[in-house]
């Protein structure tokens, strides 16, 4: 991991010094342990701020589309690279203005799970290969990283960047899954009332902060439907129906585009697994169109293209 950080800093510094890019978007250490934050740097000296660890769970493609027209470089994990591909396909970024610093991803850790395990406030977090050394004021534990991976990372089959200009580490082995959607299957197995209850309970703590939307690279609309007032598509309060409408519609806007990067869940302060909505659409995209988002810049997404073979048995 350390050599990978060194390489990221070298490449970023080099690109900025030569003026090949105006900005480099990457991760920097946060003010408290495990809270790495996205950063945009524009000088060679600042390249030393860049870091990478198993806590870099946000998706940097989200920030790339906000620098339109500028030449930028982005530090990209597998999922970030897939969202950069999606941005290129959706004309949000020009490939020529983009330099992708690819990072083969070892998987990101679930901060809620680690916090629950440790109990108290976490004062230190270090990594040594697959071992996480986490400390609180009066405790120190060594945890096996594989037990604390985020759910989406444990099911990830695209750890290596799909599109990149340079790789900063050896490619990691991709896992083969017999069933990529066990969680969706579990919900599907419930009765209609059971499923409704599941989603009611899932969103009951939602405070409508929209952190999930803000962290999502797909949510780049200049005015989000929840912020519009004429017409007002959805009520703005805590009414349960409005909360569910927000989650339902936001998920649907991600149909055939979501890369399951987990940024929405990472950003949620209430620990809501927002992915329960989007995962169903990912599974449908796979089943109906054989589509996984963000794998190639040469194909149009299924909801963007017509084919006579499109499934249409839902229509009478």
């Amino acid at each position: 991991m350390d050599t990978c950080i060194q390489k990221i800093r070298e490449i970023a510094g080099d690109l900025l010094e030569k003026g090949e890019v105006e900005r480099v978007i990457g991760f920097a250490e946060g003010s408290i342990p495990m809270a790495t934050s996205p950063v945009a740097i524009s000088t060679k000296e600042d390249a030393q701020k860049l870091c990478f660890s198993s806590t870099c769970g946000l998706n940097l493609a989200n920030y790339a589309s906000k620098e339109k027209g500028k030449k930028i470089a982005v530090v990209a994990k597998g999922c970030d690279s897939r969202n950069l591909v999606t941005h290129i396909v959706e004309n949000q970024i020009d490939r020529d203005n983009l330099y992708i610093i690819g990072v083969p991803c070892p998987g990101m850790v679930d901060k809620f799970k680690i916090a629950a395990e440790m109990g108290g406030e976490i004062t230190g977090f270090e990594e040594a290969g697959d071992t996480l050394i986490v400390s609180t004021v009066d405790d120190k534990k060594e945890l096996n990283k594989q037990d604390y991976l985020r759910h989406n990372c444990s099911l990830c089959t695209h750890k290596n960047p799909v599109l990149f200009d340079v790789l900063v580490g050896e490619e990691v082995e991709e896992q083969q899954l017999d069933n990529a959607y066990p969680d969706v299957d579990a919900i599907e197995a419930l009765t209609a009332d059971g499923r409704w209850k599941h989603f009611e309970e899932l969103t009951q703590n939602c405070i409508r902060c929209y952190a999930c939307r803000n962290a999502c690279p797909l949510c780049y609309c200049p005015t989000c439907f929840v912020d519009e007032s004429g017409p007002q598509w959805v009520g703005k309060g805590q009414d349960k129906t409005d909360v569910d409408t927000f989650h339902f519609l936001r998920a649907f806007h991600c149909a055939g585009r979501c890369t399951d990067c987990g940024a929405c869940v990472e950003a949620c302060p209430m620990g809501i697994n927002v992915r329960d909505f989007t995962r169903k659409l990912n599974k449908d995209a796979q089943d109906m169109f054989g589509w996984e988002a963000g794998l190639t810049i040469d194909k149009r997404p299924p909801l963007d293209a017509y084919s006579p073979d499109d499934p249409n048995d839902f229509i009478k």
């Binding site: 209609a192 059971g194 989603f199 339902f248 649907f252 169903k280 839902f314």
Partner: peptide
């Protein structure tokens, strides 16, 4: 859309 509604518990 119908599929996601059904997934959320709205009867098909």
């Amino acid at each position: 859309m119908g599929n996601l509604l059904e997934h959320m518990g709205i009867e098909k």
